[in-house]
Computed example of a mutant assay.
Amino acid sequence: MKAIRCKTYGPPSMLVLEDVANLKPGKREVLVNVKACGVNFPDTLIIQGLYQFKPQLPFTPGSDVSGVVKAVGEEIEQLHVGDEVFGFVAHGAMAEEVLIPANACFPKPPQMDFPIAASFMMAYGTSFHALKDRAKLQKGETLLVLGASGGVGLAAVELGKRMGAHVIAAASSDEKLELCRQYGADETINYSTEDLKSTIKALTHKKGVDVIYDPVGGDYSESAFRGMAWNGRYLVVGFASGHIPKLPLNLPLLKGASVVGVFWGGFAMGQPKENMRNTKILMQWYAEGKLRPHIDKLYELKDAPKALKAMMQRKVKGKLVIDVRHEI
């Protein structure tokens, strides 16, 4: 089979497409013919050796995946050859085949096409876990989403509105913020042209925001935290800016606020039953037309390095997807 391979840590241009050995499932694994693979910002970090875990070289990047079951492990009863599925892996999805742990592989709803399925789990799973389980977002609270036009950010905007919050979307351009408004943002902040802290205070009539969803990190984190309301919750989701910020600890003290880590992958693998409950809710909302993932562009498998480069250059609104349907 063909796969994108990372043989040495570095930029996307160092990735290669080559033939590798076919895979065989273990007892609790599902072998899937890949139809589509979502591109996520952590993929750009993993290939550079900058993520919190480093796969052994050489490896295949890619986490979000959808496809058709080719074979199942001997202990698996809930999935069968020919089933259309979606799921996630730590790495390995940018290929024609992938092995998915049984507790991370789900039947694909018939009305959900393969690219949508491959763009869904990490973005919506992360954001729903963050807002529901970690922030315990309540109806009527104010939610600020940084990096709001990206994959997880746009999902947070859409879910926050669905959960009854007043949503403020912050992004780096008016074009990106227009997309956020289409997904439910009540108000927007262009932090390339507006001061983040003072604009938060103005929009909330000096009260501040109850929950901050931050997948960006970098220079905006402290300014956003200074716009936090009493008893606020600051969700640390990721560091797409490439810079891990330092936060003065007097700020959580003075605001009675919490700094809350969000690691959906750890949650999904460590608490599969709770993750399954969340997934069923998200699937129901999608089936009811209440969620509509935004795919910015499709790429062929051979062009996966171009997709990762676009992700690193902050050119993406919503999700990018590697379309493998015509290459197997």
Rank of each mutant, 00 (worst) to 15 (best):
Gly266Lys: 12
Asp195Trp: 07
Pro215Gln: 11
Ile244Tyr: 08
Gly238Asp: 09
Gly184Lys: 11
Lys206Ser: 06
Ala170Tyr: 03
Ser258Glu: 12
Arg277Cys: 05
Arg162Gly: 00
Ala170Asn: 01
Tyr234Lys: 15
Lys161Arg: 14
Gly270Ile: 00
Cys180Glu: 06
Leu179Gln: 10
Glu175Tyr: 06
Gly217Arg: 13
Asn278Ser: 05
Gly261Arg: 13
Ala169Met: 05
Leu253Phe: 09
Gly266Cys: 08
Lys176Asn: 03
Ala170Trp: 03
Ile200Ala: 09
Leu282Pro: 13
Ala257Asn: 04
Leu235Cys: 13
Gly218Val: 04
Lys197Glu: 15
Ile189Asn: 02
Lys176Ile: 03
Trp230Pro: 05
Gly232His: 09
Leu251Trp: 10
Leu203Cys: 07
Ser192Ile: 00
Met163Ile: 03
Gly232Ala: 08
Phe263Tyr: 13
Gly218Lys: 10
Leu177Arg: 13
His205Gly: 05
Leu235Val: 08
Ser241Arg: 12
Met269Ser: 14
Glu222Asp: 08
His205Thr: 09
Thr188Glu: 04
Lys161Val: 02
Gly256Asn: 15
Tyr183Val: 10
Thr188His: 06
Ser173Met: 06
Lys206Ala: 10
Arg277Asp: 11
Asp186Met: 05
Asn190Cys: 02
Leu247Gln: 07
Thr199His: 11
Met276Thr: 09
Tyr213Met: 09
Arg181Tyr: 06
Ala185Asp: 07
Asn278Val: 00
Ser223Pro: 00
Tyr183Glu: 01
Tyr183Ile: 07
Gln182Ala: 13
Ser198Trp: 00
Lys206Cys: 04
Tyr220Arg: 06
Ile281Phe: 15
Ile244Phe: 03
Gly266Asp: 09
Gly242Gln: 11
Ile281Ser: 15
Ile168Gly: 03
Lys255Gln: 05
Gly184Asp: 06
Ser172Lys: 05
Gly270Thr: 04
Lys197Ser: 15
Glu178Leu: 10
Lys206Asn: 11
Met269Val: 09
Ser198Phe: 00
Glu274Lys: 15
Glu274Cys: 02
Gln271Cys: 07
Gly266Val: 03
Leu235Ala: 04
Ser173Asp: 00
Glu274Asn: 14
Lys176Cys: 06
Leu254Thr: 08
Phe225Asn: 03
Val259Arg: 10
